[in-house]
Design a binder for these strands. Structure first.
Lengths: 124, 124
DNA sequence: CATATACTTGCACAATCCTGCAACTGTTAA
DNA sequence: TTAACAGTTGCAGGATTGTGCAAGTATATG
């Protein structure tokens, strides 16, 4: 046994969350794929342009041209970003006439966005 | 005036969050730099390896070798990732003897991580 | 002081991702 | 059906980023 770790006590329950084992009676229960999925969501949120889109959508559903005009950016760029957000199920789209309205997928996402921005505004 | 947008009503309060203007009496108040900062945080969370680190740190503070052993990865790799997380003030480090203990920076981050993973586990 | 442990940093390679433009699809109106 | 509007998709640069290994720093121990 390598003595790299400081070894708090001699018992064996040393891996509280995500060691290599497959015991699932831990306080924070999560599996490997959930971790990857969560990271994918965070990555999608991790870009100023996309995040700004989401902040607008948090207020209300918008169509693509609305977003493009509000942000002063070409329409294909907006569409592309929405596509990425949709592929992660962060936004959903519904067609209405010749417009496509985008909105946040659920309350969970909404809270995630809000919390992130709140945190960013607080400590800097 | 271009009639690209569907124009819900004729009033002028059409930009609820982040239009180009500089009026700050809106429901969701946030400025440009906050958006970029928030994105930077999300981006840091947006990688499975780093996220896994954070999930471990959510349970308790760990030193680098602990994390390296638990995740079966070379120590420099862990250190590198922690460096990135620290540069975004997502984790903080405190030295204790010959070990350096890392922990989440604050409750806000902890909640962000938890919410993200929870969401990921729910709908897939 | 010299050595071992614990961790950090630098650098180069590879992969991934964002962007912009052009072409294409779908919907409404004449 | 044709034309105009709304949005999507494909593709090729260019930039950013993750990874691995080697070398460097810092702290404790003999």
């Amino acid at each position: 046994m390598s003595k790299t770790q400081p070894k708090r006590n001699a018992t064996e329950d040393d891996a509280p969350t995500c060691a290599g084992g497959d015991h699932d009676h831990q306080p924070v229960k999560f599996d490997d794929s959930a971790c990857e999925r969560a990271a994918a969501i965070f990555r999608a949120l991790g870009e100023p342009q996309r995040l700004r889109l989401l902040i607008m959508l948090e207020a209300r559903a918008c169509c693509v041209s609305e977003l493009a005009e509000a942000l002063s950016e070409p329409l294909p760029a907006i569409s592309q970003r929405l596509r990425i957000l949709k592929s992660e199920r962060i936004v959903r789209s519904r067609r209405q006439g010749k417009h496509v309205y985008y909105s946040l997928a659920d309350e969970h996402i909404s809270r995630l966005v809000t919390n992130g921005v709140m945190h960013a505004m607080e400590d800097e």
